[in-house]
Each structure stands twice: as structure tokens, then as C-alpha cells.
Design a protein around this nucleic acid. Structure first.
Length: 568
RNA sequence: CGGAACGUGGCGCAGCUUGGUAGCGCACUACAAUGGGGUUGUAGGGGUCGGAGGUUCGAAUCCUCUCGUUCCGACCA
């Protein structure tokens, strides 16, 4: 490709509305352009990268035995009524209708459609297991799209759905998909981690997420520093920190604590460590208000709380008026002693003694509180966020934290959808049986952004070799006037192209500095600078985008040299 | 959805307080010089100021409504 025949529009200035580096660089290089909130046009340059990622995904999915197909993006509302997921997805569903006022959703995911397809196509256990996938545009009406294509509303996802006669078969395919995902992200060239995850609105029994490690990641990944354990913070088990409850040593005492409304201020006021205090949070429950109790220095894990049977879903904190009605005081003084309602305590809290809590009366706290003697709880649950330094749940090492970008999520769905939609097969005994399902998502457009987050410097993108839009950039100095430079550049271009190497030759009439800056921004892995200066010695210059060190290479051997570099 | 801000050529911004029918940088076009790190000069093209309504002799500027965008919080590939 010659730049004059390509669409290359770079920008020197950082766009004002781009927060993170990948978004900035994608706009500056001209890979994407914004059409509206969370809507992006993929320019030819961006699409090249996107398609490379798609192809890697295809190859690995095919190799893992999955079958590519394509389902409609627009889905009849009736399908969603069958599974009752309209509520789960809520406002994220883009509702549309046709001229006859029939209702549709623009698909945010395709469990319903595939299950409908399979219930009609698959009738016998002999057709199982089977795994279908597609690479397709999805739409989720995100409340807050941001970070360019990292969290856009319209995006491209690879989604796969597997069907099985039994759980063992599901697990087998699940493991295959896990391996395929590992291969895909490795081939793309990114540093990632597979972690335990909450299944959220998709549902099912078990799931794992694939996170590309990057400081700008929206998720916190907890991992054992010395072991194998890794989990999304929202899923990461927080072990109880006290082995057993010490005997009570203090008498309960009501203390006047004027204007002390936060754990920090109460602890400072009473001159105790925050670990001696507890925090009581009131949320809406299924039957009655629920008090969720965590240690003062811990934070409530809302995903875990949301998953509790006694807690109303979605999780909702009581507002000031409700708190007053339930506890008889304001939010800063709630406590467990005398609390009327369902009380859920964190594992750590269950083992505390002589602790401090609110007195359910404004400006008063209790000290020396002890379970059984002074207060009681209904359940012990893991409801807090794990913290750096906590013991790893698998007993190996302690936890540390990293930021991650979720690029993939695999689920063991079980029969949630097949039961709801009556997707059954006849088993060997001729009996009707709901199929077991797995589903496996991967954010294709997000992967592009994640790759940039992980591979850039102050000059621009540094593409991993397997997804670079071009492998080689030929940068001729004074292409327009120097016959010699022009001929050398053209010859090299033809030669590399004929070998199937993707080359971009910058034949624009621009100054050297401009051209070099542009290609540093674009991040093409291998760059060849052709100028009269080196040609005087029958040489050209080679630079690798990673280290940017110039190497003089003979004009006669540059072709082989490049082929070697690309292979390496 | 709650909180904040912004909307002026393709991009980044000034002008708005103290109304008098638009300006700067980048980009773009032409010519010339330059020719190894976003060079320089000259000459150009392009906007009626998000939209609607109002106040006024007169509105980018004041008022009202509306649409859009972005940022901070709860969701997800």
C-alpha cells in the first residue's frame, strides 16, 4: 500500500474528549472516528487491525472445534420474554420496532437466539456436543459509554455457545475454550490473566474472565503473589481474618460521640484502630430490611451482597428516610445492638469481640460490644472486598492487586436457558432432557484498545507483530526528487509485496521529520528509511519500533534482512 | 439515572462578563524556497456561532426551553 492510495489522516493534537491513551492514539492515528456517544466508525487503518484479531480468533475457535455461523443482530422481543431476561438487562436493551409496531431488541448477546436455533435443529444426543460461534456487532445501551471503543455501545463481539448432554461434556468444552482463549490472547501478543468471576446477568454456575493487564483497566484483579489463585475483586473470596472469637473482656458501654458520623472519625475520636469498629449498612431485603455488617476498615462487596438470598436484587441502599424509620437514627450511628431486622455479618465480623458500633441513636456509639451477650446476627457470609495482604483463599500466599481490562468471559451456563426455552434432546434412553450449555464471549473491538493500552510509548502505538496494520513501513527521504531514492524504495516495495509481506510506502511529499513522527505514531513494527545519505554507501537504514535503534543494512541484503526480522 | 461542565470552520481554542452580524493555531488548496526529525514565506478556500423561541433598533454574547457531548458514581465483551 502506498500512503497516497490509502486513507491516512493523523493528528498531532490530542483529542479533548479522549481520557485514556488507547482512545487518544486511536483517534490520532485515524483508526476510528466518533459518530455519536459510544458509536465509532472504523476507518480502513483501524479495520485492518480489527480483522487481524478476528482472524486469529477464527483460527483458534475453528481449531478448538467450534463452528462459525451468523445470527441476526435484531431479535424479536418474544424470545426475551421466554427467558425473562428483559428485567435483568433493563435499560441496556436497545428496543426498536418495525412498521407494524412489532417489538425487537438490537442484540446485546445471543443466548436466546442460539437456544431457539438449537432447539429446532438438534433433537438427539447424537448431535451433541456442539459449539457454535459468530463474530458480530452487538449493542448495549450503556449508561455511560466511555474510553472510546473500550466501552462503546455498539461493539463487535465473538460469542460462542456450546450444547451438551451432560455436565462432564460441558466442562470438557469449557476447558477447550479456556485453552483457545489463552491461545488467542497469546497470539495477539498481550499480557493477560485468567481469573475467577461472577456470572452477573448471563447467569450459570461457574465463570472465568480473561483480563489484559493494564493500569487503565476498569477491574481490580486479586491474585496470589506466590500461588495460582486469581479472581476479579467482585468475586474474590475474602477469608475470615480472625481464627476464632476471643472471649469478651470489656463491658458494654454507651459513649457520647457528637458529630462522629464516619468510621474514620469515630475511631479517631475514641482513639482506637478502625479494626475494632464495625460498619452497619442497610439495604433493601426480600422480606425485611437487611443490615450488612463489615469491619470498619473493610468495604462492602456489592456483587456478593447482591447475590445473597435475603437481599433484594438489584442491590439498593436504603435512603436517609428509610434508615431513620428502620434504625431510628441517621446513617452515621447505625449499630447491631437492638437492630430490628435481618442481620448478615461478614466472616471477619462474626469473630470479633469487644468491638465498637453505632447505638442506633444519633451521636452515640457502643464500645465493648460482644456477640450473643449484647447482639446477634442471622447469617455469616462473605460480603466484603478482599484486600491486598489478605491470605489467598486457596491457602497459598497472600493477595495482591492489579488492574485488568476484561476482554473475554467464559461461562458454564448449565440448563438455565435450555430449561426456560425448552431446548431438549432425546438421550440414549429415549428420554427428553434439557441440554447443558456454555457460552464464551470475547470483546473484539475492545481487544484493539487493550492492545494499545499495553503497547505504546510517548511517541505512539507499538503494535505487537501479529496485529500490526502493516509489517513494514518504507520511508523514503525526498522520494519526489531523488530518482535514486525513489527507485530503491519502489524496488523494495515491489519485492516485499510479492513475498506477501504487508508494506506501506510513504510516497507523500512531506518532510522527513513529519513522516517519521507519523510512523512512530502509527507504530509499524519494522521501518526502513531510504535516503541519499546512506545510498552513497549502497545502504539503507532499518529501525524497529520497539527499540528505535538505527541499523545500516546493505541495499542488497535488506530484503532478506527484513524477512528475517519479521520472522523473529 | 443522580451530580458537574461544555457545545463557535475538519481538529484544538479565543470572543460572551461590559450586545454592534467572527478570530487564532493546526489541518486543507496553490505557488515558491527548503530537503534526515512535525521547515518557511506568499496567496487562498471553508463557519453565522448545536437547535427552537424570546428580549432588543441590533444577539455568538442576555433570558427560556430543547438537543447533543464529556467528566464523576452503580453495569459489562
Amino acid at each position: 500500500m502506498r500512503t497516497t492510495a490509502f486513507h491516512l489522516v493523523t493528528r498531532k493534537e490530542t483529542p479533548q474528549d479522549a481520557e485514556i491513551i488507547s482512545h487518544q492514539l486511536m483517534i490520532r492515528t485515524g483508526m476510528i472516528r466518533k459518530l455519536g456517544a459510544g458509536l465509532y466508525t472504523w476507518a480502513p487503518l483501524g479495520l485492518k487491525v480489527l480483522q487481524k484479531i478476528e482472524n486469529i480468533i477464527r483460527e483458534e475457535m475453528n481449531a478448538a472445534g467450534a463452528l462459525e455461523m451468523l445470527m441476526p443482530a435484531v431479535q424479536p422481543k418474544e424470545l426475551w420474554q421466554e427467558t425473562g431476561r428483559i428485567e435483568d438487562f433493563g435499560g441496556q436493551l436497545l428496543a426498536i420496532h418495525d412498521r407494524a409496531e412489532r417489538d425487537y431488541f438490537f442484540g446485546p448477546t445471543h443466548e436466546e437466539v442460539i437456544t431457539d436455533f438449537v432447539r429446532n435443529e438438534v433433537n438427539s444426543y447424537k448431535q451433541l456436543p456442539i459449539n457454535f460461534y459468530q463474530i458480530q456487532t452487538k449493542f448495549r445501551d450503556e449508561i455511560r459509554p466511555r474510553f472510546g471503543v473500550m466501552r462503546s455501545r455498539e461493539f463487535i463481539m465473538k460469542d460462542a455457545y456450546s450444547f451438551h448432554l451432560n455436565h462432564e461434556s460441558l466442562v470438557e468444552t469449557y476447558e477447550k475454550m479456556k485453552l483457545a482463549y489463552t491461545n488467542i490472547i497469546s497470539r495477539i501478543g498481550l499480557d493477560f490473566r485468567c481469573v475467577l468471576a461472577d456470572s452477573g446477568a448471563i447467569g450459570g454456575s461457574g465463570s472465568q474472565e480473561f483480563h489484559v493487564i493494564a493500569d487503565s483497566g476498569e477491574d481490580a484483579i486479586m491474585y496470589s503473589e506466590t500461588g495460582e489463585y486469581a479472581a476479579n475483586l467482585e468475586k474474590c473470596e475474602a477469608v475470615g481474618l480472625l481464627d476464632s472469637r476471643a472471649a469478651a473482656t470489656a463491658e458494654i458501654e454507651k459513649i457520647h460521640t457528637p458529630e462522629q458520623k464516619t468510621i474514620d472519625s469515630v475511631a479517631a475520636f475514641l482513639q482506637v484502630d478502625k479494626t475494632q469498629t464495625i460498619k452497619t449498612l442497610l439495604v433493601a431485603g426480600v422480606d425485611e430490611p437487611v443490615a450488612l455488617v463489615v469491619r470498619g476498615d473493610h468495604s462492602l462487596n456489592e456483587v456478593k451482597a447482591n447475590n445473597l438470598a435475603s437481599v433484594a436484587s438489584p442491590l439498593r441502599m436504603l435512603d436517609d428516610d428509610e434508615i431513620k424509620a428502620v434504625a431510628g437514627c441517621d446513617a452515621g450511628s447505625i449499630g447491631v445492638k437492638g437492630f430490628k431486622g435481618h442481620v448478615v455479618v461478614d466472616r471477619t465480623v462474626a469473630n470479633m469481640s469487644d468491638f465498637i458500633c453505632g447505638a442506633n441513636e444519633n451521636d452515640y456509639h457502643f464500645t465493648g460490644v460482644n456477640w450473643d451477650r449484647d447482639a446477634s446476627f442471622d447469617e455469616i457470609q462473605d460480603i466484603r472486598d478482599a484486600q491486598v495482604g489478605d491470605p489467598s483463599p486457596d491457602g497459598v500466599g497472600t493477595l495482591n492487586v492489579a488492574r485488568g481490562i476484561e476482554v473475554g468471559h467464559i461461562f458454564q451456563l448449565g440448563n438455565k436457558y435450555s430449561k426456560a426455552m425448552n431446548a431438549v434432546v432425546l438421550n440414549e434412553q429415549g428420554k427428553s432432557q434439557a441440554m447443558e450449555m456454555g457460552c464464551y464471549g470475547m470483546g473484539v473491538t475492545r481487544m484493539v484498545a487493550a492492545a494499545i493500552e499495553q503497547n505504546h510509548d510517548d511517541k505512539g502505538i507499538i503494535w505487537p507483530a501479529n496485529i500490526a496494520p502493516f509489517a513494514v513501513a518504507i520511508l523514503p527521504m525526498n522520494y519526489q526528487k531523488s530518482e535514486r531514492v525513489r527507485r530503491t524504495a519502489d524496488e523494495l516495495y515491489e519485492s516485499l509485496t510479492s513475498q506477501g509481506i504487508e508494506v506501506i510506502l510513504d510516497d507523500r511529499k512531506v518532510r522527513p521529520g513529519f513522516m517519521m513522527s507519523d510512523f512512530e505514531l502509527l507504530g509499524i513494527p519494522h521501518q526502513v528509511i531510504i535516503g541519499d545519505r546512506a545510498l552513497d554507501e549502497n545502504e539503507v537504514e532499518y529501525r524497529n519500533r520497539t527499540d528505535m535503534e538505527s541499523i545500516r543494512v546493505s541495499r542488497d541484503t535488506i530484503n532478506d534482512f527484513l524477512a528475517e526480522q519479521i520472522k523473529a
